[in-house]
Design a protein around this nucleic acid. Structure first.
Length: 362
DNA sequence: TCTGGGGTCCTAGGACCC
DNA sequence: TCTGGGGTCCTAGGACCC
């Protein structure tokens, strides 16, 4: 072992990102409740809330609730449809700034990134200065606020960025990890969601501190090898996962809600063709080939089922996506007596497109 | 007054090969 | 009549995240 120096990791998390982008574009809505919506296309207010600003959250409007319910909670809030192109371009501005301050950047989603600054700073006081500079630069150049966590690993950095929001900064030094974690709710641990949270509650565990008192054996017995071991480590603030630049995505998919529930294959084929075209365009833009195609079906009971076909060799053409997805849909409808509410097309096992050789290359 | 869309990672069972 | 063990790939589904 060459060194005991801790790593220094930042997690940068944009505040209520989609809604904040809209506030920047339309300054007149600032200060009012703003709700970003994904309309299902079934007419009226059918659909779900993607995110909302803090004014809207005061009324109980949060991500995931039906738009109709949000309208009941605050009828005169500002309701806007998702505008991904806008958010993506603003995200690019933000990520470029963050990248300028770190040795390695791992973009986690459109509004979050891990930033490894080990080696660029010598301690957590300097790390705090870097975090403040990032926040200030994003505010100045992009006009948005974010929350930042600084810690010796990704797990704690992420929890720290969430600890004080919006426009927050939380630094957790190596010696402070256990005190910081112990009182937090079990679901504050990234990776512990509703299901795992409920099972832990049944074991009498409500906080991360309580979780850390269970033995690895107990947790492995309850949750299986990988998850049990992970829970034990995570509860003690241990996380060795590195910050890695991601090459790109592993899968590309499109999913949509049908105008009405159906098992009419002709209607489903039409939608598959459209979704396949969109998937193809994303693939094309990134110069990727795929080895598998998946048909995703969500029935009217909201259960998700999938059918996948893996090709003998990578393909890159539009027609393979469409034809394969249609075959899978045909088999699906034959197999399940279900009416479908939503359908999707996904390609995976993506490989770099080697490109077609032209004569000139030889 | 029902319930979007885009992802990642893990597990388990079966097929297949040596 | 009895017939192992391991590795890898594929499919389907679950949990989780934003």
């Amino acid at each position: 072992m060459s060194t005991n120096n801790p790593r220094i990791i930042l997690h940068v998390d944009m505040d209520y990102f989609f809604a904040q982008c809209e506030e920047r574009e339309h300054p007149e809505i600032k200060g009012k409740p703003v709700v970003i919506c994904v309309y299902s296309g079934r007419g009226g207010d059918s659909g779900a809330v993607s995110t909302s600003n803090y004014e809207a959250r005061k009324f109980g409007i949060k991500a995931g609730i039906p738009i109709s319910r949000a309208k009941k909670l605050k009828p005169d809030a500002i309701f806007l449809p998702v505008n991904m192109e806008l958010y993506r371009s603003i995200s690019d501005e933000v990520m470029e700034i963050v990248r300028g301050h770190c040795a390695t950047l791992e973009q986690e989603s459109v509004d979050e990134a891990f930033c490894d600054i080990t080696g660029r700073v010598s301690d957590f006081d300097e790390a705090k200065s870097v975090a403040l500079r990032i926040k200030e630069e994003i505010r100045q150049k992009v006009g948005l606020t974010c929350s930042v966590g600084a810690a010796p690993n990704k797990l704690i950095a992420k929890i720290a960025s969430d600890f004080q929001k919006p426009d927050g900064l939380t630094v957790v030094k190596p010696g402070e990890i256990l005190q910081f974690m112990a009182p937090l709710k079990i679901t504050d641990l990234t990776g512990v969601g509703k299901k795992t949270g409920e099972r832990l509650n049944e074991l009498g565990v409500k906080t991360i501190g309580e979780l850390s008192k269970l033995s690895a054996d107990e947790l492995v017995h309850e949750f299986g090898q990988a998850k049990g071991v992970w829970l034990k480590q995570a509860s003690q603030g241990i996380d060795d996962s590195p910050v890695v630049e991601r090459e790109g995505t592993e899968q590309i998919g499109r999913i949509t809600t049908l105008k009405e529930d159906t098992r009419d294959l002709n209607l489903i084929y039409e939608v598959i063709n459209k979704l396949s075209d969109e998937v193809y365009m994303k693939l094309e833009a990134r110069k990727l080939s795929f080895k598998s195609v998946t048909f995703v079906a969500i029935s009217n009971d909201f259960k998700t089922r999938t059918k996948t076909h893996t090709l003998g060799a990578p393909a890159k053409d539009q027609e393979t996506i469409k034809a394969t997805a249609r075959e899978l849909a045909t088999a699906f409808i034959a197999e399940y007596p279900l009416s479908l509410r939503r359908v999707g097309v996904r390609v995976a096992n993506l490989v770099e497109d080697k490109g077609q050789r032209t004569l000139g290359e030889f």
